[in-house]
Design a protein around this nucleic acid. Structure first.
Lengths: 257, 257
DNA sequence: CGTTGACTTGACGGAAGTCAAAAGGTGTGG
DNA sequence: CCACACCTTTTGACTTCCGTCAAGTCAACG
């Protein structure tokens, strides 16, 4: 199954024709990007919506003083903004990390779909809301979590997201990034990230080798991150009432994750 | 003119019937909130979309250890997520600051509008994209700007946003927040925020009295923030080619702002 | 006029940044 | 197969920005 379908099934059950539409969606004009190659660049107009099918891409914003901030990881199944095409120009870059396969969907096709009132449209909106929610959670991390918790949180989030689209092998997943880039993601220097990684390693929580991250102690990592998973809005795995789940503790913590 | 219409006109020119629709939109079931009163709470399902018409609201996320992170300011004309209603539960709170007037638009009305292929729907999408862009810029700030630049950036952004909806008096606008809350917005302690404010004051950049912020030296504040305005996607004020504007410098910097 | 809450100031400690160099990989070409 | 260049990771010493704690000021208000 294509990763986008897998992801959207977290939100709702899809009918056969909807799955078929998504398959076509994902097979429309594919392109493969080499490591470091830009998919969209700041200033450019995006006339197509991109879906990552394989590999890894990042959103990144570069400041004039040369510093860069990583804004999001786009893993298989992730869309780069369902409605980008309404903007005149991108305000940041999207860049491939490792070899990355994407499908390009013309704005018109996307728009046509968004005007058909159905399950699928709502599912796409859900994915948009999810992206914002993740972004907000990153902001929370930058604003109020220390280095250790921030890194732990990122890793735990990525583990869950990779699982959702079937890209995790057990408790590990591909993360073909230099520490330098990871540091940009969590908003700290590469040196300090390195020390933080060593700390997490020493505590037996993770392993990060050969461009892959392995979570050795999921519960421990989750605790280190003080991870609360409601922001991922995975309702199908948790039953209906999230309000209750938020108050009674955290249902996901008792799940296999 | 209602602030939502003013805001959307930044994106596109609206026809008479579209303006009328927006007026109805903004007059549907209004409610007034007292300072500190929650508009939406985490865990709750949002079956309506909220538009702020007057006053000020904030998005806020509370961590279990009691720390809070402010995620966004909702000023007049701002919507709290055009498509929230697809979610089962809010993952954060929206709270009134000062006295705040909001309109509540039922999910069905919103959805009906979003399925009518028109200018207006694209304008609403634009406002969604704008919210994400602002959120991303905050993340950049938290990750790679120091205290001074971060605060300066926030103030400059708020000044522009207030101007867009006609809520700025010259170079000042209402900001009925304790420094405590401002500190949560920029991700630092109240003490350090206080010192940073003093610094900006000493440099003659701002004044912050009586629940209002006055920018004394817009150009200086903008420089202190190393503000690049393209993320606000104000295309109508800048002509068509933002790609060029990004490369040739920054058109907005030479504008009255 | 005392109480309350927001703002201000000072002294101190600690987490993270900076700079620089060493150590460890990896790929290329001789 | 080694040598070399190059990149990434690691380490160490030092600095600084920001957090913490605590006391003090000030204005608003009953």
């Amino acid at each position: 199954m294509n990763p986008l379908t897998m992801k959207l099934e977290q939100f709702t059950s899809l009918a056969e024709d909807e799955r078929k539409w998504l398959d076509e969606f994902c097979s429309s004009s594919r392109r493969t990007f080499e490591p470091g190659q830009p998919i969209f660049e700041r200033g450019q107009r995006a006339t197509e919506v991109v879906v990552v099918l394989d590999g890894l891409a990042i959103r990144r914003k570069s400041l004039r003083d040369g510093r860069q901030q990583l804004l999001a990881f786009l893993i298989p199944g992730d869309l780069c903004d369902v409605e980008v095409f309404v903007l005149e120009a991108m305000d940041h870059d999207i860049v491939a990390v490792g070899e990355t396969v994407c499908a390009f969907v013309p704005a018109k096709v996307m728009e046509a779909q968004l005007h058909r009132s159905c399950n699928l449209t709502r599912a796409l909106w859900w994915s948009t809301m999810l992206d914002s929610a993740i972004l907000r959670e990153w902001l929370v991390g930058h604003g109020s979590r220390d280095a250790r918790a921030r890194v732990a949180h990122l890793f735990f989030e990525l583990l869950i997201r990779h699982r959702l689209v079937g890209r995790a092998q057990g408790d590990s997943f591909a993360l073909p990034l230099p520490q330098e880039a990871l540091a940009e993601a969590v908003g700290m220097t590469a040196v300090h990230l390195n020390r933080t990684l060593q700390e997490l390693r020493a505590d037996g929580l993770i392993r990060f080798e050969k461009k892959a991250l392995t979570v050795l102690d999921p519960a421990g990592l989750k605790a280190a991150a003080s991870f609360e998973s409601d922001y991922l809005h995975l309702k199908r795995t948790e039953g209906r009432n999230q309000a209750a789940s938020h108050r009674t503790g955290d249902l996901v913590s008792s799940s296999p994750i």
